[in-house]
């Protein structure tokens, strides 16, 4: 069980870490774009983001399942991962975390004094430099957006169960393993895995908080 648990922890870290990285890579620029600009369709985009923030993970699991299944019109495309692989789980978690990161980043950007953008432009900033300056001002909110994204995926079970299949040694992560152990009546094992999951969440959030705190006092 110990070796298995180690594998499960490592896979959980890998799946959630990679998913958080890509959802931040996509979500932060999307949040900046939505927070700073007006464009046709922005309202619809914001409504979609808000909807995505509360989307049931199991529905996202179902959508990704169809997308990656043989019935999908996109089936066979080289960049799409196979079902029941860690990559499929990562894709589902990116879709889950993206609206959280984008939505909270947008809110953080909108909380920065709107006059600042014009004032940094008056000091000679290009549009990109102005956007980066505002992002820097909103850094605490952006960290909170990443925390929210991490919280959304580390605790998630429905989507990864559907697209990963909870295959031992291949796609079994902490949350799916906890469900399995509980169903089998192995409460001690389930409780141990839960404590590891809580510890992981605590360590990652503590690191993000330290980063936030350092920036706040920077």
């Amino acid at each position: 069980m110990d070796a298995q648990a180690g594998e499960i922890v490592l896979l959980s870290l890998r799946v959630s870490g990679v998913a958080l990285f890509f959802s931040s890579l996509l979500g932060i620029p999307a949040g900046v774009l939505l927070g700073l600009n007006r464009f046709p369709g922005k309202r619809l985009a914001v409504i979609l983001i808000y909807t995505g923030m509360g989307f049931p993970p199991v529905v996202i699991g179902l959508l990704v399942y169809f997308l990656l299944s043989q019935r999908s019109p996109l089936a066979g495309l080289p960049f799409l991962p196979d079902l029941f692989t860690p990559e499929a789980m990562i894709l589902a978690q990116i879709i889950l975390a993206f609206p959280l990161v984008a939505g909270f980043t947008m809110t953080a950007i909108q909380a920065v004094d709107p006059a600042l953008r014009l004032q940094v432009m008056a000091l000679g900033a290009t549009r990109a430099q102005a956007a980066l300056s505002i992002l820097r001002e909103a850094r605490n909110g952006v960290i909170a957006a990443i925390v929210a994204g991490f919280g959304g995926i580390i605790s998630e079970v429905g989507a990864v169960m559907m697209v990963g299949g909870n295959i031992a040694g291949r796609t079994r992560v902490l949350t799916t393993a906890i469900v399995l152990e509980t169903r089998q009546g192995n409460f001690e094992a389930a409780l141990s895995l839960s404590l590891i999951l809580l510890g992981m969440a605590f360590v990652v959030n503590a690191l993000l908080f330290i980063l936030q705190d350092r920036w706040q006092n920077d």
């Binding site: 004094d113 006059a115 600042l116 014009l118 004032q119 008056a122 000091l123 000679g124 300056s133 820097r136 001002e137 920077d218």
Partner: peptide, 16 residues
């Protein structure tokens, strides 16, 4: 644009 600079009535400074 960089040859001209403006100071606003209500300046907003960076959190720094």
């Amino acid at each position: 644009r960089r040859r001209v600079t403006m100071v606003f009535q209500r300046p907003v400074l960076l959190h720094d």
